[in-house]
Design a binder for these strands. Structure first.
Length: 271
DNA sequence: ATGGTTGGGGTCCAA
């Protein structure tokens, strides 16, 4: 048996609950990490998830903005959140799975929503960009305080950076666009090396094949223009990397009725 | 170069 983990920036879980239900029914993940739930804890539609068998829910909500939730049909032994940059934003939730549940050994799944960073890629002119860079630095320091060669850890979520040239529709056109600037890409590289984390998507589909998980709402025809970016990621600790069996980007979901601008990313891990 | 769309909460901000 394999275990299936998925991540999806849902852009309002209440508005798009029917889409989440469809995804769970059609793709049967064991655990789903959601970002941008855009609701407080008490407003999260828990009963709809429980009805589909996802009765274990780790939640870090916030009114109106951001917010992350990890829903699971496997029992969650422990959950915790860490506040980054002392901003009070709900951008992280960790769920711990006891030995024998997700993997033979204890496994921690970190669900992240990294700040988008605003429009101007200059930390002096744009406080949101400064926040994004500071968040990445804090995450790098946090990663270095772990021994990922010996831990089973997964980092999934909307990281709001497309690190490789083939993670965007045009490397040249996006060099000054927040999400693909050299300063962000450099910081993400440092973060990956700090683990080191293993990029599950690129392990299964190496460059130069293009991979996108997000298509802007602002394009008249997202599919025809295909100006995508790979903003969503699933990373594995080195110890967990050999378990990786497959990876899927559910591009179809971008064409569903009233879609999120992000699509689900799915990995299967041998347990 | 510019502007394009969406969601939440309230008459604008974040993405």
């Amino acid at each position: 048996m394999t275990k299936r983990i998925a991540t999806w920036n849902i852009n309002s879980v209440r508005l798009r609950l029917p889409l989440v239900e469809r995804f769970l029914k059609e793709h049967n993940p064991d655990v789903l990490c959601l970002q941008e739930i855009k609701c407080r804890q008490a407003e999260f539609p828990s009963s709809a998830f429980t009805a589909l068998g996802y009765s274990h829910i780790a939640l870090n909500g916030q009114k109106g903005y951001h917010g992350v939730a990890t829903v699971s049909r496997l029992p969650i032994a422990d959950m915790s959140t860490r506040e980054f940059c002392e901003k009070g934003d709900a951008r992280h939730i960790a769920a711990t799975f006891a030995p024998g549940i997700l993997q033979r050994d204890e496994t921690v799944l970190h669900n992240f929503y990294i700040p988008a960073g605003g429009d101007i890629p200059d930390r002096e002119l744009n406080e949101k960009f400064a926040h994004k860079l500071d968040f990445l630095d804090e995450l790098t320091a946090w990663t270095m305080s772990h021994n990922l060669a010996r831990e089973n850890a997964i980092l999934a979520g909307d990281l709001n950076i497309a690190p490789l040239e083939t993670d965007v529709w045009s490397h040249k056109a996006l060099l000054k666009i927040v999400s693909h600037t050299p300063v962000e890409v450099e910081r993400m590289k440092r973060l990956i090396e700090a683990g080191p984390w293993v990029d599950a998507m690129r392990t299964m589909v190496p460059e130069p094949e293009r991979l996108y998980t997000w298509w802007s709402y602002r394009a008249a025809n997202w599919e025809l223009a295909n100006k995508g970016r790979r903003l969503d990621h699933i990373w594995l600790s080195q110890r967990l990397a050999p378990s990786l069996k497959s990876m899927t980007i559910l591009k179809d979901a971008r064409g569903w009725d009233r879609p999120s601008d992000h699509v689900p990313v799915i990995v299967d891990l041998e347990d």
